[in-house]
Write a protein that binds this DNA or RNA. Structure first.
Lengths: 329, 329
DNA sequence: TTTAGCAGTTTACACTTTTAACTGCTAAAA
DNA sequence: TTTTAGCAGTTAAAAGTGTAAACTGCTAAA
């Protein structure tokens, strides 16, 4: 258990380091704590023994360790209220009901990346367990049509379908009707099976170009299941942070952003606002990721804010909370 | 006019520098040109006087100047044939007819960024002069529907539309029918006008919640017109190049990639394959951009490959040409 | 328990030195 | 006239040196 003074010291060091990105010296704290630098040094020493502080080299000032940030976030930090300007900017988005839903969350995150110096990643719902509600087909020309799929969670996607050769509109309609009858309520995961073992044998009887149609739809639906939407905003922000003042480190981060698998692993399991400091996340030991789920019109997704470990936790949490609470209206 | 030997020398220097990114010394060329380093030095000197070569410092080897690359591209370079492996990889995409059109070009560029060490940007056609062919609406629930727009070029987009309050399905249907009747054949540019001056007054007569419906559709359509698709692949590639071995330079490039205006200014005017070396492009003096237009199913777009000035011009040109020629089937 | 003071570290920066890699020039050779 | 050998001169890059500034840890006294 930390003493009152130790907590105060940890708070000062974490917040100073968050602001300046420079190790905090004992002398610089004298005024605030009303004691000599030697006293502070001995307290620093015990905080270091507890694993809450670190030195960059033997005679340097102290910086918070991962455990130090964790203690700060769990026990010391008080969420910061939003400023009038911040509320104003966010309200413009949130209150704009005419905004198309997918864009609303994207725009919100753009605002947040402007208000902070961090990078936002928005992951659309991993839709494999969505159930299909409806399928519609719109003909474009003789060889192309558009298939629209609507899931029970209100998620919508469209795909262009190319049909080889000449297929009658009637055959298409019959196939679509059958698909609709058989496939509604199926999860996106199971679509392939239903198409292959139920739709295919049935249309074979009365649809002339059944082979062609089956292939076309099979390919189109396969892409629905594999499609995760990823939106990123303010990529450059995190690179501007002084801890990433190194070409190789920047390359490393950019590569990770570009790697679909790594970005998708950001997906969030729990509700609430979750903080993953350094090695607590599986993205990069030098960053903190704050994630939360959002629900908007029944569609779920994850938003994540990625910044250096010395993140302005108190402010970011409030910002994300605002989005989470207000975006669903 | 360059002598035969001068052209040979320029070719050797450009190609060596493209491969190694290091200034080329006179000694290293002796074997290839069958003469002493002194002779080569004097030829280098005259090429430098012509502005085709540069030195990085007074006693360094030579590197090509922008003018040197330009001369190489215009007069010396011979497009390189694709290797069997390259053709194979590209054919898999090009011949896959079931691929949705937009994905085909995106996937092609992904292959190209894998085959090269450069970054690809694909800009979808600025669709403002597309004509609307059809609009369909699919209800999702009481307050949400999906509007699908199909243009004469076969371009398809969908938008989720939020309807405030309770609007009868019948009213929606009537409005959509009217929109369809009035708006088909209109260009995306003129949609707003038609909605405001033709649709609005008419539905006012017989649609109860006409104000709400008008607003919902107005907003949704407005976003169709303003939507330029931008696809980027292999962002990290160009950053791996040794000329960008500097944190600030990398940040600069990433910032430019993130700036919509700058990226959209990459849009191409002429047909053919165009090469913009260094200051010839308005993106960044340290890069070369090779652009070309593509047409796929009547939809136009621009693809651009961005790399260091010491690009493998001979190979990249062939690759892009292959995409350009074959993607349209 | 707190403090003053001092010894000991480390970084950061500015120099210097050294080495390797080039070029330009000149005078002789082809 | 063209080519070449040889050498002086230049520079970058790496390695080493020196110094000042900024800290800490420790000790002994308050």
């Amino acid at each position: 258990m930390l003493s009152k003074r130790q907590e105060q010291l940890l708070k000062i060091i974490v917040e100073d380091y968050i602001k300046t990105a420079r190790p905090v010296s004992s002398k610089s704290i004298c005024d605030i704590m009303n004691c000599s630098s030697a006293t502070i040094r001995s307290e620093m020493s015990s905080l270091e023994d507890l694993g809450l502080l670190e030195k960059t080299h033997i005679s340097s000032g102290r910086i918070p360790s991962e455990k130090g940030y964790r203690y700060y976030v769990d026990h010391i930090m008080v969420p910061k209220e939003l400023t009038g300007e911040e509320i104003l900017r966010l309200q413009q988005i949130v209150s704009n009901k005419s905004l198309v839903v997918n864009d609303a969350i994207a725009r919100s995150m753009e605002i947040i990346t402007e208000l902070t110096s961090y990078t936002a990643v928005v992951l659309g719902k991993q839709s494999s367990n969505n159930l299909i509600q409806k399928i519609e087909v719109i003909p474009v020309d003789d060889n192309n049509l558009v298939a629209i799929i609507v899931t029970d969670k209100g998620h919508v996607e469209h795909k262009n379908v190319y049909i080889e050769g000449i297929v009658s509109m009637n055959d298409i309609k019959q196939t679509v009707d059958l698909i609709n009858k058989l496939i509604v309520g199926t999860s996106l995961d199971d679509i392939s099976d239903v198409l292959e073992f139920e739709v295919k044998p049935r249309i074979a009887d009365y649809v002339e170009q059944h082979e062609v149609l089956y292939n076309a739809f099979y390919n189109a639906f396969n892409e629905f299941t594999n499609n995760h939407s990823v939106f990123r905003s303010g990529t450059k922000n995190i690179l501007m942070q002084p801890e990433f003042n190194d070409a190789d480190k920047i390359r490393d981060i950019i590569s990770k952003f570009e790697d679909k698998e790594i970005v998708e692993s950001i997906e969030e399991k729990d509700n609430g606002i979750n903080i993953y400091i350094g090695s607590e996340n599986n993205f990069d030991d030098d960053v903190t990721i704050i994630k939360t789920k959002y629900t908007i019109n029944g569609e779920e997704g994850t938003i994540a804010l990625i910044g250096p470990k010395r993140m302005e936790y108190d402010r970011v949490i409030t910002l994300l909370n605002y989005i989470k609470e207000n975006i669903g209206k």
